[in-house]
Design a protein around this nucleic acid. Structure first.
Lengths: 341, 341
DNA sequence: CTGAAAGCGCTAACAC
DNA sequence: GTGTTAGCGCTTTCAG
């Protein structure tokens, strides 16, 4: 038989569609007897309400959109997982779209999701997003949105971040505590908040420990690739005095590590290497890579929870004070760094 | 102003809703003049049809469901990307759900997607799925479905696979050609097709090259983890004669590689190690890991394309002859294997 | 060429 | 308690 509908159930029981609908949803003004009858039939036909009709009627999709800079990425895919699982618990499904770190794609994908009437949006800003009109527009339209990871202070909404600066500070401090005197930093391109904050944390740590900042040993990686790391390793090796490297992401750090090893540098005796993110691969390099753990899963989960708050607030017409949640990080010390005395 | 609707456009132009609808879709029975007028207003108000209404009316969601054994996984996240991008080109969005290799979760998530009236399903069977009623049910209901990667011969639908057996055969053959005489195999648990096929490929290669199969040097990993690999490395080392290892996945292979190196074994001089999947990390081990490349992106793309065929066939009431597409693999030779003479 | 009308399946205000 | 009704916004058949 074709799909059961309220109408069919109603006909079978000689009730009206409205009554059946209410019975199913346990409205108090329906007698227990009819509720029972209705529920029996619902069971029998294993009736499932038609989502299309519900969506149209209730103006909600029970779907949220997740825009992620890169899908094939250890940290970000953990976020996908965290979001998906948290959402599922509340009856939401997730549509994932990649921004590929591009402003245009970010806009296009945001549009696609809005068109589909997603109930909310989770967004990590693409690296080259500099204008924010598309986002303020979304906020003005009243679509719930939460920013995660790469955020901007330019607008008022819930945010989830890790404290990159603090984490970078601690990573650098560890290198200093373990005896490094001349610590290079490998950063990414100028713009993204994360890169900048990690750089600042590095600088602050140096300052607090009376090590003078030397611009010439801050390397900037454009492509942020494993091979880029190797190339930078080469430049690091040339500078005889460097005895520590703090790279802003594990992909680079591992390239640097392998590069240095291949050039005959003893790790960590001659140079300590510290990464950032705790990618799976950090366990597998030789020596294994010390790094900063950032829990993407937890970030994803929290991001959804905040979005959910926002969705509920919208439904109930409450104004929310927006907060920024910080996901804690911790140092993961492996074998690419010396032990502190 | 609130969202533009067909009705509002119609009122503004003193037309009927139906005419406006047809004008927008370029129906031949509408005069060019009214089409122009309508399109001007559409432009002006930047009218977007309400998807909820379209869904309800057309009985299609333009959303497909993708069930993936594991989200945080290099190969599978490449599949997610391939599917998402291919789908987007045809106007479909993708909901991704994880089966965590569990039959129950697979069923639950399949149900969730069906409830949402996805237009089609992409499924890779969970390792412990042994009963297939839930899937035949879906096929019987007429929901388009395509199986990818971990498939089963039990039902009639489009499938996308890599030829695991052939790929494993070639990997093993390479080890033999490079002079290995006693090649261990590290496999996964009994069930999944992929594991079995890779094992069979290994066996066939031995046979074709007159190397007798030795059950005692086939190791089975239950947890399929990096540490499991290390533990197996230990057992391999004890067997003095083994001079080659073919592991059915890179995660294990890398554990074995690192494990052997740590126990002082020279790679590849004493033992060659060959992995499978070409995970990113294979470039980063020391020595780097030879492996078999399987292109998840391409698999995802092809899987969607087949699903799209199926969706169209359903719309047009055509019967399809179902095919199984094989995604080619290739050996990626790095430094964990000896060069053939 | 255009308009009217039915209906996709559900919800909720209102009437009885 | 239950039924009636009026939509949500769109598509498509049929009539004129």
């Amino acid at each position: 038989m074709s799909k059961p509908t309220l109408k069919k159930i109603a006909e079978r029981l000689n009730l009206s569609v409205g009554t059946v609908s209410k019975a199913i949803k346990d409205y108090p003004d329906i007698s227990d007897k009819t509720k029972e009858k209705v529920k029996a039939v619902v069971e029998e036909l294993s009736y499932k309400p038609n989502k299309f009709a519900q969506n149209l009627r209730n103006q909600e999709s029970k779907i949220i959109g997740l825009i992620i800079p890169q899908i094939v990425h250890h940290f970000f895919s953990n976020i996908v997982l965290g979001v998906t699982e948290a959402a599922e618990k509340k009856g939401y499904l997730v549509i994932v779209l990649e921004s590929t770190e591009s402003y245009e794609t970010e806009m296009k994908h945001l549009d696609l999701l809005i068109e589909r009437h997603v109930d909310g949006l989770l967004l990590s800003l693409a690296d080259n997003t500099i204008k924010y009109n598309h986002i303020t527009e979304i906020i003005d339209q009243g679509v719930p949105i939460v920013l995660y990871d790469k955020i901007s202070k330019s607008f008022d909404c819930h945010k989830v971040v890790i404290d990159d600066k603090k984490a970078a500070y601690n990573a650098t401090k560890y290198l200093i505590d373990s005896g490094c005197k001349k610590i290079a930093h490998v950063r990414g391109p100028l713009k993204p908040q994360t890169t900048v904050d990690r750089f600042l944390g590095y600088k602050d740590a140096l300052k607090d420990h009376h090590i003078s900042f030397d611009k010439s040993i801050v390397f900037e990686s454009e492509k942020i690739s494993f091979d880029d790391g190797k190339e930078i390793a080469h430049r690091i090796k040339k500078n005889k005095n460097i005895d520590g490297v703090f790279a802003f992401t594990d992909l680079l750090a591992s390239g640097i590590l392998i590069g240095l090893v291949q050039e005959g540098v003893k790790i960590p005796e001659e140079i300590s290497v510290m990464g950032f993110s705790n990618w799976r691969l950090t366990k597998m390099t030789s020596p294994s890579l010390s790094t900063v753990n950032q829990c993407g899963y937890e970030m994803g989960q929290k991001a959804f929870e905040l979005l959910y708050e926002e969705i509920i607030a919208k439904k109930t017409n409450t104004k929310l004070k927006h907060k920024t949640i910080e996901i804690p990080t911790e140092l993961v010390i492996r074998n690419s760094t010396k032990k502190p005395a």
